[in-house]
Design a protein around this nucleic acid. Structure first.
Lengths: 337, 337
DNA sequence: TTGAAAGCGCTAACAT
DNA sequence: ATGTTAGCGCTTTCAA
């Protein structure tokens, strides 16, 4: 609560109005549409606001108008740059239009997501962003009941809750397989973090690779979040374990790929001659490694912006011609292949 | 808004109460303190909630109770792991106590921070987290007027707005200088990103280094955010530019240090024999590089947790014995020194 | 251009 | 154990 000159009394529009010699409604008008108030009145109101340090109460405003100017977002992890980097342009685009963002992390857990959605909906957001397309039945029911614009990102769905901006993980996996095969590889492995989407990419990669004549693809599931350490361990396992040593490794993230590269170099393998490495996400550091890492790039800034714009279109009640937007991906070939 | 079985009517506590044959207040009680309601009534209310898909309106609740259960946070950058990694335990600790977190990024800009603080305060948060101790005068006034618990983190202040959890950047800089000198170094340089706190560390490092007999410390200001690329460029400039080539480089972040290492290795310099490197932040990858990077570690998880606990103590109106908490730092020596 | 009145959906007293 | 009554600080609508 804001305090009037230390007198301990809460400052409201009524306080400001009294000070400016007008009613509370006029203060409200001065703030929401200054052109509806005479210049002189406006001046006195602004003076009173300055003097009292009045900050409008958005809670009361939201209750009265049934608009919260809040958009909430759910992402798997705050510290994972892949997600935080589309959140930045998403927030920016919405903030420019007067919305604030309430952000929570689900930790890749659909039931945690369900609990968070309830909590978020209780704040009566005007719109919502979800990461991924896999939600519990209860989550979908809550969302439909809320009757607000919802955008699902970082994946593609035939039957989105509402809007969807992303790319096909299966297609990405297949594209990497084609890329590897066309380079002449026939013995590949994959290293995958605990993430349903990463597994979908891996499966599509393996299926396509074998289907087009490559050897069966060995996979290491690192059993947790991606890290350099996990990548190192995974390659060690691949080399020391059963089966032929792969000549190419497709990693579910650049972080894992970095670990694979470090382990390979520590073992005296040269990249890409002895071992080719492909990452996913094309994080900033990928281009800077030695050799530079070949990776799958998704335009995350564009994805964030498009997701925000899709919601804004819905909120403006304009026609949404394409509820599902495929932002695609691109394999960026560098030194590791 | 939630919708009752598609009839288009909003579901409120009154709707639920009518359905369960009780008044609206009883529904409120059933939700906030079930022990105050008879088991049979509770059962009927829960049934009605289930049937209608009722989600409580936290906006109305906040307005009536003058408690929003919201804590807002301002950090310089969402995508910088240094900040997002203390936000995770901060959020977690508060969420366990029923608070939600509204998070925005300031982009290291105090005037942007000021604008955001106004917006945040309009949501009437119960408490607030700020990164750093440098705020505009208007910001401080707004904060004092709001009369809520505020915690400033990632720095130390003699005169905090309210609470403070962090460490001394000047002391960190001096400790690194002592560390380098004790290792026998006498010719050092620094590579620094555009960040006031980084510059404070750099200055303290240079001052102590010279004061204890080292040569004057050359510095490269990368003139932007830290990145591997910027680190590479900085070292190249240091080697090709005027002045003696340093035998040790203190970087304002691990990312810059990584860039310095890559550039050094690309030039055939061996680390640490030809060039010693020290980072800051001790990010996950630091220990995994070859050689592993010596860095300054700050326990960010603990910092986040302590910041949350400090706010919770204030909110519980319990005595706060130590408004300023120094979480310290630690130089982790690894292969690059 | 301004104001009066009603009401948003809850919680906090105070009854019963 | 349950209900009644008054707000919370705004926006909306209608009137002047």
């Amino acid at each position: 609560m804001n305090v009037e000159n230390g007198t301990g009394k809460r400052v409201t529009m009524a306080t400001v109005g009294r000070m400016a010699g007008v009613s509370q409604v006029t203060v409200s008008r001065a703030l929401s549409d200054p052109s509806k108030v005479s210049p002189e009145t406006l001046r006195r109101i602004r003076e009173a606001i300055e003097l009292t340090g009045f900050v409008p109460n958005a809670i009361a405003g939201a209750l009265a108008s049934n608009r919260s100017n809040l958009v909430t977002a759910l992402i798997p992890s705050l510290t994972n740059v892949v997600y935080s980097s589309f959140m930045a342009p998403f927030s920016e685009t919405l903030r420019a239009r007067g919305y604030q963002i309430l952000l929570s992390e689900t930790g890749f857990d659909p039931s945690e997501e369900e609990a968070l959605i309830s909590a978020h909906l209780s704040r009566r957001p005007d719109a919502m962003l979800l990461t991924g397309i896999q939600h519990t039945a209860a989550t979908r029911r809550l969302l439909l009941g809320a009757a607000i614009p919802v955008v699902e990102v970082w994946d593609l769905s035939d039957s989105p809750v509402d809007l969807c901006v992303g790319f096909s993980h299966a297609e990405a996996g297949r594209a990497v397989a084609d890329f590897a095969l066309d380079l002449g590889h026939s013995c590949a492995a994959s290293v995958t973090a605990s993430d349903e989407r990463a597994h979908r990419r891996r499966r599509a990669f393996a299926d396509r690779f074998s289907a087009r004549g490559g050897a069966s693809v060995r996979d290491v599931d690192v059993g947790g979040p991606a890290s350099i350490r996990a990548g190192r361990t995974a390659l060690a396992g691949l080399i020391e374990g059963q089966g032929p040593t792969p000549r190419l490794v497709f990693c579910s993230s650049d972080l894992l790929a970095h670990g694979v590269m470090i382990e390979a170099q520590a073992r005296g393998l040269s990249i890409p001659e002895d071992l080719a490495v492909i990452g996913f996400g094309d994080q900033d550091f990928a281009a800077e490694l030695e050799p530079a890492l070949t990776s799958v790039r998704v335009d995350r800034k564009r994805l964030g912006r498009l997701a925000a714009e899709a919601l804004l279109a819905r909120l403006a009640k304009s026609e949404v011609t394409h509820p599902v937007v495929d932002v695609g991906f691109e394999i960026v070939r560098r030194g590791t292949t």
